[in-house]
């Protein structure tokens, strides 16, 4: 009986490992799937090559815990969150939907390729839905 359970747990962990991503990749899918577009994949590594952390996490208003930022396209177009740079001046504008909305449909939001810092507090409804 116990052995059987171990195999089930092992199998489940392999399934969850199948979506690898690069270390620090964050999938954002609070609204995308429902709106009929691919979820957003945010690559930390790409942005780290070009900006220090404080640019987004202090100036840009992104809270550091994944899932704690309620990001909508409306705000991005208004120049908040991603729109601070993705405005056609510093980086490509929000017209290039498919560059950010590039994830596999149905992917749960959160970190891929590294640990999800949900913390003992759980990280709010973003994590409630995932776990």
């Amino acid at each position: 009986m116990k052995r059987w359970l171990i195999w089930v747990v092992l199998g489940m962990s392999l399934v969850s490992l199948s979506a690898q991503g690069e270390y620090g990749d964050v999938v954002l899918n609070r609204y995308a799937d429902k709106a009929g577009v691919r979820p957003v994949v945010f690559p930390h590594w790409f942005h780290r090559l070009r900006f220090t952390c404080n640019v987004c996490h202090a100036e840009g208003g992104f809270k550091m815990r994944a899932g704690s930022n309620d990001i909508t396209m409306g705000e991005i177009v208004d120049g908040k969150f991603c729109g601070m740079c993705h405005n056609g001046e510093i980086a490509w504008s929000a017209e290039f939907c498919h560059r950010c909305h590039s994830g596999r449909p149905g992917l749960a939001g959160g970190f891929y390729g590294s640990q999800d810092p949900s913390g003992p507090s759980g990280g709010g409804d973003f994590y409630q839905r995932r776990h």
């Binding site: 690559p43 290039f96 498919h98």
Partner: peptide
């Protein structure tokens, strides 16, 4: 040494934007 975006199982390989994005290997 890095998994390309088309094979990382996070990006949709059918997505039209992938060819316009940098692969982790190329950047790192």
């Amino acid at each position: 040494n890095w998994i390309p975006l088309t094979k990382d199982q996070v990006h949709d390989p059918r997505g039209p934007g992938l060819s316009e994005l940098q692969d982790p290997g190329a950047g790192l």
